[in-house]
Simulated scan of single mutants.
Amino acid sequence: MKNTNRINLELSLGKQINALISASHALNMKTAARFDSTLQPAAFLIVRWLYSYGPTSATALAESTAMDRSSVSRLVNQLKKLNYVKGEPSPNDKRGVLLSLTDLGSEKTIEALKEKESAFYERISRWDDLELENFIEMLKDFNQPDNI
């Protein structure tokens, strides 16, 4: 049986994780609006994925973002019309299309992410290197898939 102190610590951890998730979600929404306020935030999820991982198919994009294919298709079409995303024939499968960011899409993504990064940098600015290293290592350990 767990002692009261351990239970309180676990409840406190849950509260802090929830605060982190909520703050991250709010910051993602703000970043998406900075990218292009006329788009749904889910469109920025696609843009962010393409920026991080590079060209991919719509099917792979849907799977990796946990969105249904019709939503990805609709959002990609909006992003194409605004010249943020382009589609090119796949070199491996001539029938397939690889989606990637245009130069404009990359530039706007970098601008939006700078604001997001500055918010995170501001939060950790008072930490010394050892505190930051410890935090990173603890997050790595916590985020290991086999820990879930």
Rank of each mutant, 00 (worst) to 15 (best):
D68A: 04
P89G: 03
M67V: 08
E137M: 14
T65N: 05
R69N: 09
E10W: 09
V97S: 04
L61D: 03
D93L: 07
I46C: 02
R74Q: 04
I148Q: 15
T102D: 04
E115P: 02
N3E: 13
L27Y: 01
L139N: 05
S22D: 10
F120K: 06
W49H: 15
I124T: 05
M67W: 06
L13P: 02
N147G: 06
L13H: 06
L82T: 06
N28E: 13
N18R: 12
R123E: 08
Y51E: 05
R34P: 05
N8E: 12
F120S: 02
W49T: 12
L20I: 09
Y51F: 08
N3D: 15
A119I: 07
I124C: 01
K94L: 12
F35G: 00
Y51C: 07
L50D: 01
V85W: 00
T38V: 09
I46T: 01
Y121T: 07
R74N: 12
D146T: 10
L50Y: 01
M1I: 10
Y53T: 06
N83S: 06
K94N: 10
A32F: 02
S100R: 07
L104C: 07
L99D: 04
E63K: 11
R74P: 00
Y84K: 01
A58Y: 13
A43E: 00
T31Y: 00
T59H: 10
L27K: 04
A60H: 14
K2C: 13
S12K: 11
A33N: 07
S71R: 08
A119Y: 05
A32G: 03
L132G: 07
A26S: 14
K86S: 15
D103K: 10
T31K: 00
L45I: 06
T56W: 04
P89A: 03
R6I: 11
Q144F: 11
L11C: 05
F35E: 00
S70A: 15
V76M: 01
L39M: 02
Q78V: 14
L98Y: 08
P41I: 02
R48W: 03
P145F: 01
D146L: 09
D93N: 07
K80F: 03
E122W: 07
L9A: 10
Y121C: 07
N134R: 10
Q78Y: 10
D129N: 12
D141R: 10
A62R: 01
